[in-house]
Every structure is written in C-alpha cells, then in structure tokens.
Design a binder for these strands. Sequence first.
DNA 1: CCGCGTTTCTTCGAATTTGAACAACATGCC
DNA 2: GGCATGTTGTTCAAATTCGAAGAAACGCGG
Lengths: 154, 154
Amino acid sequence: MATTRWLDEREMAAWTAFLEASHRVFRVVEQQLKEDAGLSHPQYEILVKLAAAGDAGLRMTELAESLITSKSGLTYQIGQLEKRGLVARGACPTDVRGVMATLTEEGTRKLREAAPGHVTCVRETLIDGLDRAQLAVLAEALGDISARLREKNA
Amino acid sequence: MATTRWLDEREMAAWTAFLEASHRVFRVVEQQLKEDAGLSHPQYEILVKLAAAGDAGLRMTELAESLITSKSGLTYQIGQLEKRGLVARGACPTDVRGVMATLTEEGTRKLREAAPGHVTCVRETLIDGLDRAQLAVLAEALGDISARLREKNA
DNA sequence: CCGCGTTTCTTCGAATTTGAACAACATGCC
DNA sequence: GGCATGTTGTTCAAATTCGAAGAAACGCGG
C-alpha cells in the first residue's frame, strides 16, 4: 500500500471538531429527552419517522435503514415502545413476513409532548450557535457525505 | 413557556444532515477499525489520547472528559485494553487516589499499526468528500459548538 | 490537627447494541 | 409447479454503556 496521506492541520481540526461536536451534542440531546420525556434519542427518532410515515406505518427493515441501526436493535426498541403503548405492530399487506410499525394515538401524543423541548434543545445546542452561511454549508456538505454513504452501503 | 420556535427547512436540513452523517460515518469507522485492527473506535481514541499525552500518561478523569464518556465507561475500556497489554495503570505522583493510564510499548505498536487504515478510512468517508472551504467552515463551526458545550458542562 | 464537604476511581445492576443463527416466506428461473 | 437463492423479522449470547452507590483520600476552614 502507498504511503498514508495523513491529515494536515486543517483536516485534523475538521475531523476532531466533528468528533467532539457529535459526542457532545448527542449527549446533551439524550439527556434532555430522557429527563423531560422519558425517551432515548433512538426512541424519539423512531416516533418521528413513524409520524412522518402516516397511518400506514413503516416496515421494520425500512425503518431500521432509515434510522441507521441494526434490525435486531430495532426489534428491541419497537418492543420497548410497544410495551409502553406508543407504537403498534401490524401485518404487512403485501408480505406475510413483513411487520408494519405504526404510531398509536398515545405515541402521537407523546411525540407532540416531547417535540417542543427537543427542538429547543437542538436549537440551543447546535442550530442557534451557527450563522446562516455556516448552516447552509453544514447542510450541504454533510448532506452530500450522507448521500454518498447511503448509496455506497445500499 | 413561549411558543416553540420550530426549525425551518434550512435548519432542519442541517440538523438531519448532521444526524445522518454522524451515524453513518461512525458506523463505517467503527467497522473499519474492528476489522483491520480489532479495536473499537472508543478504544482507538483512548490510544490516541494516551499517545499524545506522552510517557506521563493521563489521569482517568482527564481522559474521560477528553473522550466525552462516563468515568465508569472508561474504567471498563481501560480494563479491556490493560488485559490486552496495550495500556497500563500506574500510580499518580500527586494524588494517591489518582490512576495514571499510560500506553505500553505494545500499545504504541498497535496504534502505529492501526493508524494508517483509520486515517485512510476517515479520508474516504469524510475529509476527501469536502472541499477546502467546506472543511474550513466545518472545523470552525463545529469547533465553536464544541467549545461552547465544553465550557457549559465544565 | 480535625472534621466535613469534594473528588477520584471502581463496582454494581439495568438497559442497550450488535452480529450470527434461525425459521418462515418471497422471488426468479427452469 | 418446483427448486435455488435471497429477504424478513426475531432470538440469542456477548459486549458495551450509563448512573448510582461506595470506599478511600484530598484539602480547606476553624
């Protein structure tokens, strides 16, 4: 293998900033959700995705991919949310093996209850600390990175 | 509480991009390290921090804060790395309670062995997908965010 | 020099995550 | 139709994470 192209100062700064910001932001968000709504961030994200999916809900595999988590991990979390009555499992119309996860009434209520605090936290932690230009670059740059990885592992 | 300031399209795009990119990048990096070096990303980061700290090593608490992880979590990981001979625990000269974690010879070797693959992965996954300007903005914006959170939770 | 509030690290139990193995089913191709 | 191959969701064991609780030691104010 050719000699490694190490990161120069600029690149290293970007990587470590990305690393640290991710860790810190997620930690804060996790904390806020747990305290104010009794939800973990993964659980909150499940509710959001299901809410966006409407009454039909989403198949387990779709949901897992969309959340960038393992299928077994999702099975576990859906189980937890189902126990709490926030999510329901249903049959898939087009595939007997399929499982449709849907938001219950109470799940919808829970999400509505949790959303304001979460959004405020995201604002305070990340969004409001950036100006318009930074926000735009962040969205585009990281959006591209995401899209690339999404396709690569498709 | 006042009405929630929801995220507009631009802000939402930035947040979701940040979310997705973080998840995906970390997943890829984790995978690469595990396969090529038998290390988890947290473990690799420990080795890096200890290497940077030199022969004196670092105290557990310092290391934990620097890694943005819990003290108990660090105790566990240091235990794992110690078992494998990559890290050693030593007494702290200025505080009997203190524990200094240091890199062993073999830990240094392991890090040198793992670094090229890791850096290449970081490049392919994130750095090389960004241009100079994006890199600069990312470093500055996320650096500021990190610094703010670092002080807030000091 | 002593006591009391802090700090340091570890231990413990509970919750979560992952990949591998599995059983049931779908799909394409002959 | 019938088979080979790929998917789907779950279960399982193992690894990891966290916070609370605890034992020991620090250090400051009296």
